[in-house]
Design a binder for these strands. Structure first.
Lengths: 135, 135
DNA sequence: GAGGAGTGTATAAGAATCTTAATTAAGTTG
DNA sequence: CAACTTAATTAAGATTCTTATACACTCCTC
């Protein structure tokens, strides 16, 4: 029933979500990641340690707080995220290719409203307004 | 980045997905569940044992093959699925309530095309055409 | 219709990933 | 500056997955 998104290249669901978050929103503290990913801060510490060992993210000191750590995605990590986005785009293109132009037009017309719904959702969930750095 | 759907009432992602599948498509064999959930057959056997112990599903012999087991959702399991659907509907209603009638109309107009895309996706993935028993 | 290959399920053992709890260090506040 | 709070780490244990194996049944072929 559910669609199991990730598990690419032996990376777990949460791990891939962290990479996407970092690639889309820039460096984050471990505590920020823990709250956005809905796992404990301990789990994030352990995951980041593995990701760092694999060269997909790096830890940097936070200049504004010497207790804190900023996690950022590396070029290798970014490449994985971009590859996954390309795969998804290709897959969606394959599906929309089977639709009629009229059907595609109805979907395109709904996108602004869907984007607004997503914004409303983030606002109601009390999530901070983070711009998406995606290119 | 990803949206972590389940984890309601201590039930895992895969567990809830199985309940939804059974509630939507009726009794299934363990092997069928394993392939639709994208986990090993062993994992499904273990999960169903726990779900059965919790009274959410039941095992029945498959009259057409004495090796096989048919798993069906119980009334208690169905109640969980229905409760989750109600929660989701309420949440979506809250979001669409923030849209203008015109925005809602564009989304409604896109639904047939989106349903078709989903069908195309199942077909390309080689999934059997299973009617949804959802009421 | 007997033997062998294939299929469906179960179980055991181990790996991966999560949680809770305790620890250390740094910031905050009266 | 003492007490409290916050950020991260580490250790220990729980959960849920995988791989490997076993066993029963089905199906096919000669």
């Amino acid at each position: 029933m559910f669609i199991r998104l990730p598990a690419v290249q032996r990376l777990s669901f949460t791990t891939l979500s962290v990479l996407h978050t970092l690639a889309g929103q820039g460096p984050k503290r471990l505590t920020e990641l823990a709250s956005s990913e809905q796992v404990t801060q301990s789990a994030i510490t352990q995951m980041v340690t593995k990701l760092e060992r694999d060269g997909l993210v790096e830890r940097r000191p936070d200049p504004s707080d010497r207790r804190a750590v900023l996690v950022d995605v590396t070029a290798a990590g970014t490449a994985i995220v971009h590859g996954r986005r390309a795969d998804r785009r290709a897959h969606l293109a394959e599906l929309t290719g089977e639709l009629t132009p009229a059907e595609r037009a109805t979907i395109a017309a709904a996108l602004p409203a869907l984007a607004r719904m997503s914004e409303v959702n983030r606002r109601l969930a009390g999530e901070p307004d983070v711009p998406d750095r995606r290119r």
